[in-house]
Design a protein around this nucleic acid. Structure first.
Lengths: 120, 120
DNA sequence: CATACATTTGAACAAATGTGCAAGTGTTTG
DNA sequence: CAAACACTTGCACATTTGTTCAAATGTATG
């Protein structure tokens, strides 16, 4: 009745193989999981989240954005680059000014859901 | 026609006061913004996101969770503590085993939205 | 074309964070 | 009650990350 020797800390053995397999299917697409994590991470930093929230109503130039989130232009510009790279925001140039806005409405929806979560 | 001396880098001046004020209203509730950022940050780390995704279908014990996300029990336990503290997951004890599950459906919805974003 | 200005970028640094090991806790079971 | 086991926790370490300063880029304008 005794099985092989068991690992000292549950590391190899699986208790419920079916549920594990089911869970693994949920995270099978590694690239997608990483991409989702990337987006959550970007929204998970106060300055960046404030930037995104500030842009929900209307586009803003970098200068006004810095004023809105109470930071400075350099910091905001650095963070905007990250948001840009991940396509969370897009921009429009007008002379020497650059206006940023939100790139995708799903972001708004996701933010709304998390907001609901915090409002309980 | 000249105004006072302007700051060398746009730091004090505001271009569109109305839009800035509107944006600031969006982020006026600092505590809520920080709480939202906290949740996004938690979901923004691959191991933790995998844990949460794994729990969407059914509760899992720590051991199976570690197997599912291809990590080890210690790491998973550390991350579960963070998820627990933020009330993203809850747990149920059964003998020496502990079963974790998702604490709030808003999380699922938010994840779904971000997933849609990545699927374009 | 020189100056002013909005924005971007690079470098440097402190602070935060994820991971793994080893030891600790608590529960079952022979 | 001792051994086995699932899980948690403290510590240490390497890595990542957000911010700031200073310099660079690009655009308008007198």
């Amino acid at each position: 009745m005794k099985k092989e020797k068991k690992a000292p800390v549950c590391e190899v053995e699986i208790v419920d193989e079916k549920k594990v397999a089911q869970a693994q299917k949920k995270i099978a697409d590694t690239d997608q999981v990483l991409e989702m994590a990337e987006i959550f991470k970007l929204l998970g930093e106060p300055t960046r989240l404030k930037i995104v929230l500030s842009l929900i109503n209307s586009e803003l130039c970098v200068c006004d954005l810095a004023a809105a989130v109470d930071s400075n232009v350099s910091t905001v510009s650095h963070q905007l680059r990250l948001l840009r790279n991940a396509r969370l925001v897009k921009y429009r140039k007008d002379g020497k000014m650059v206006f940023y806005s939100i790139d995708d409405k799903h972001i708004n929806d996701a933010i709304e859901k998390i907001k609901e979560h915090t409002e309980e």
